[in-house]
Design a protein around this nucleic acid. Structure first.
Lengths: 143, 143
DNA sequence: AGTAACATTTACGTTTACGTCAACGTTAGT
DNA sequence: ACTAACGTTGACGTAAACGTAAATGTTACT
């Protein structure tokens, strides 16, 4: 179990950001000491990193991230009462909703991936042009 | 030449955003009508799209984007006085600086690309698991 | 036992990236 | 010639994502 500063270092977030994320209901430490210090598990840290990646890579707002995760949690809850067939159709509905949003997110990611690849190619082209230019200049100077 | 609303539609930015970018020195319309209306060329639009992509994909702040582009412009300026060998070493210095920042940006992009690919894989896995689960549930309901 | 380094909550402050009027001029269609 | 739709420049407002300071308690070391 880690205290907040450890987690801040591990995740490269500030302590304030961690508390803020908790305030939004995005991440919660698994426990507290008797005196009230937050205690995070490795699992908590992994979760935080996932949130951070979603923010950085998908470019989603913290609210959006929360909504995605709440959807997942709602399903996990339903999953619990496994043996109540009564709720099978309800499960199916939720699952379909979850599938929809996930597929949408996936498509956004795919789109970003494509654009990123293009952009990277552009950078590489520019870099080789610069390298050539540098060689030219170095020759020019030598003389 | 397009007026601002056209450009807003083409780039999927608001008119306010376009003016704001201009205020920051990020993008300027190539011309104005006699009465003061902004006029953008296709080249301007392409530039704006590049800025937008850099913001969305690299996740850079508008200030950072400006700094990157200013560096490029500084080089373009030096490039102008092509025949003054006197400045060859100065060119080389600027070029090396430019190369450095570009390479850094490239590495960030590469890193993001890798993480994005991972994340995408994660989504796909989750989606196939959900699809299976749905099939299960559908069977269960039929009976 | 003292103290430096860590933690807590509360609350106000700040930056970025625009949104939203207001007051006013321009363009274009009928 | 009128009017709707578009443009301009201020200038103030705002949401998100924290930063920062204050007041206070806790750990841990010497």
């Amino acid at each position: 179990m880690y205290r907040i500063e450890e987690v801040a270092k591990k995740t490269n977030l500030t302590k304030r950001a961690l508390r803020y994320y908790e305030e939004l209901g995005l991440v919660s430490p698994s426990g507290r000491t008797e005196s009230g210090y937050r205690l995070y598990t490795d699992e908590d840290v992994a979760h935080i990193l996932h949130v951070k990646n979603t923010r950085d890579l998908l470019g989603a707002s913290l609210q959006e991230i929360k909504e995605i995760m709440d959807l997942g949690k709602r399903y996990e809850l339903l999953k619990q009462d496994y043996f109540s067939d009564k709720h099978a159709s309800e499960k199916l509905r939720l699952l379909t909703e979850l599938e929809g949003t996930l597929r949408a997110q996936r498509d956004v990611l795919q789109e970003k991936l494509n654009k990123l690849a293009d952009m990277l190619q552009g950078y590489d082209d520019k870099l080789t042009r610069i390298t050539n230019k540098k060689r030219e200049l170095e020759k020019e100077i030598e003389e």
